[in-house]
Amino acid sequence: MSNEKHHIVPYHVYVVILGALLILTFASIGITSIELGSLTVAAALFFAVIKTYLVLIYFMHLKYDKPYIGIMVGAVFLLFIVVIIITFLDYLYR
């Protein structure tokens, strides 16, 4: 198994992704400084999710790995979301 050929990611891909991440960071700073009420949290989280996706797919190589690792990662995030929703069934309706 040690001789499996790995995909070598070109350096410029990482630079482009970093650029995107930085833009998203400043965009989230910008959008949260506008008064959007309850949408502020949603906007900040939305940008955070996109950033997470980019880091997972490119920096953490999920794009180039066997698909089952990506499926596991997705499942873990999904489980966490389900847990938080169920917890909030208590707090939202208390």
Binding site: L79, V82, V83, I86, L89, D90, L92, Y93, R94
Partner: peptide, 22 residues
């Protein structure tokens, strides 16, 4: 089994909705 934890807390003061779900 990961999602049923609340049945230990039925009398703890959880919301009714959560109680039904659990």
């Amino acid at each position: 089994g990961y999602l049923v934890w609340g049945h230990h807390m039925f009398t703890a003061g959880m919301s009714g909705t959560a109680q039904y779900a659990f």
